[in-house]
C-alpha cells in the first residue's frame, strides 16, 4: 500500500472485520436484510450504499465547518436524499426489473443508519480524503455481510447463484437433486436473514473473544 499510509489503510480494513458496521456497530440493518434473498439484489444494494456513503462522506466533510450544528441532521438528510435519488433514477433507467425487486428499499438507503452514523461519527470531524476512505471501508464492510447472507440464502433457498442453477435442476432431478436433495424454502422467508446474521455474529465472536458482550 504505497498509495496509502498505514493509518489510512486501516480506515478501509478495520470495518471489514473487527469494526464491522453490521455485526459490531449494529448500524444499517434496516434496509440490509429484506433484500438478501437473492445474491444479485444484495450486490446492487452494496454498490448503491458504497456510492452514497463514499460521496456523502466527502460532501459532508467538505461542508463540516459551515454546517450549523443545530440543523446538521436536516442538512445530512438532504445530501443523502439527493445522492439516493441519483441511484434510484440510474437503477430505474438501466435495471428496471431489479429496481422493482428492491422497491422501497432503495429509498430507505436515506435512513440507513450506517450513512448517518458515519456522517456523525467521522465525516463531521475529518478531512475529505480520510472521510472518503472511511466511507469506502464501511460500505465494503456492510457489503461483505450482505453478500455472505445473500450467498447462503440464495444457495440454500433456491439452489441458484445470481439466478444460475448451481446444484442441478430440481425439476429434472439432476445434480444434487438426483440423490434426494431439496431446496430449503425456509431460507427464502424474511426471518431467515436474521438468523443467518445471528450465526455470522456467533462465528465472528467465537473467533475473536475480545468482541464478546457481557449481557
Amino acid at each position: 500500500m504505497a498509495l496509502l499510509t498505514k493509518k489510512d489503510a486501516s480506515l478501509i480494513t478495520d470495518p471489514l472485520a473487527d469494526n464491522n458496521p453490521i455485526t459490531i456497530q449494529v448500524l444499517g440493518i434496516c434496509s440490509a436484510l429484506a433484500i438478501t434473498a437473492e445474491l444479485k439484489a444484495s450486490v446492487v444494494m452494496a454498490v448503491s450504499v458504497l456510492f452514497v456513503l463514499a460521496l456523502g462522506n466527502v460532501v459532508i466533510s467538505l461542508m463540516r465547518n459551515i454546517i450549523p450544528s443545530k440543523i446538521r441532521i436536516i442538512v445530512q438528510l438532504i445530501v443523502v436524499a439527493t445522492l439516493v435519488i441519483i441511484v434510484d433514477q440510474v437503477l430505474k433507467a438501466f435495471a428496471y426489473e431489479l429496481s422493482k425487486t428492491l422497491s422501497v428499499f432503495v429509498g430507505l438507503i436515506i435512513t440507513n443508519c450506517i450513512i448517518m452514523g458515519r456522517f456523525e461519527a467521522f465525516a463531521l470531524g475529518n478531512g475529505p480524503w480520510r472521510s472518503f476512505l472511511d466511507g469506502i471501508g464501511n460500505a465494503l464492510g456492510y457489503g461483505v455481510i450482505l453478500v455472505i447472507v445473500g450467498f447462503f440464502r440464495e444457495l440454500l433457498g433456491s439452489g441458484t447463484l445470481f439466478g444460475y442453477p448451481v446444484l442441478g435442476n430440481p425439476i429434472e432431478k439432476t445434480g444434487l437433486y438426483s440423490i434426494g436433495y431439496e431446496n430449503n424454502g425456509f431460507m427464502i422467508i424474511p426471518p431467515a436473514a436474521l438468523i443467518v446474521v445471528g450465526i455470522i455474529i456467533w462465528v465472528q465472536r467465537s473467533r475473536n473473544p475480545a468482541l464478546v458482550e457481557d449481557h
Binding site: I189, P191, I195, G198, V203, R205, P209, V212, E213, D214
Partner: peptide, 22 residues
C-alpha cells in the same frame, strides 16, 4: 453461550418471533 450474548441472541430471537408472526 458467550459469543452469542447481547446482539447475536437478539437477532436469533427476532428471527424466531418473525417466523411466529408468519
Amino acid at each position: 453461550p458467550a459469543p452469542l450474548r447481547g446482539l447475536g441472541i437478539t437477532f436469533i430471537i427476532t428471527g424466531l418471533m418473525g417466523i411466529g408472526f408468519q
